[in-house]
Amino acid sequence: MVQKLETLIESASQTAGPYVHIGLMPTYAGNAGYYDEEIGTTPFLDESKAKGEIVEIVGSVFDGTGWAMRDALIESWQCDAGGVFPGDKSADPAFTGHCRFAADAESGEFTLRTVKPGSYQGRGGVESAPHISLWVVARGINIGLNTRIYFEDEDNANDPLLNRVEQRPRVNTLIAKKTGNGKYRFDIRLQGEGETVFLDI
């Protein structure tokens, strides 16, 4: 017998199932008022004081048949407009960086209203292009899917993650398209043609 490792193994994931909204977005599930304060309804503590450009990103999550899923739930996490992550002393105090949003039960569209993130320097001084991290869960998704939103009106040329995508046309699946002033479109395709790049990170 070799020596025994003292590390633990991560707990296995299980699907969030069809009723994930009860636990994470009670108002959406039809249970408004369950909690005094629901978590993640907006990434703003005070939108009027938040620094930077307010943006709205609209999109859908499509399954492998091209159907816009009505039950997808997404969480986002990002730095503030200055490139600082909330929790750091110098971060924008009006912004939490975290939001939860769900596909509309009728249209299958979601909307994320947030600030456009800044860029930041990661380990080794490598600069990332502005991006928002996403985590997608739903019935049928056995382990949450991680991806990122980049912006077509930013300089994405030297981003370390985008540069790792071998098939260059797939980079477009990570880039939100500008549809108006402060408005963007970002669709997520789980499978098949135009499949979004998902991350193991």
């Binding site: 790792r164 789980l190 499978q191 998902f198």
Partner: peptide, 15 residues
């Protein structure tokens, strides 16, 4: 119909 066909993109974590 809700599982990616293509491999995930792996890299070291970032901030």
């Amino acid at each position: 119909a809700r599982s990616p066909f293509l491999p995930l993109l792996s890299m070291e974590s970032t901030p």
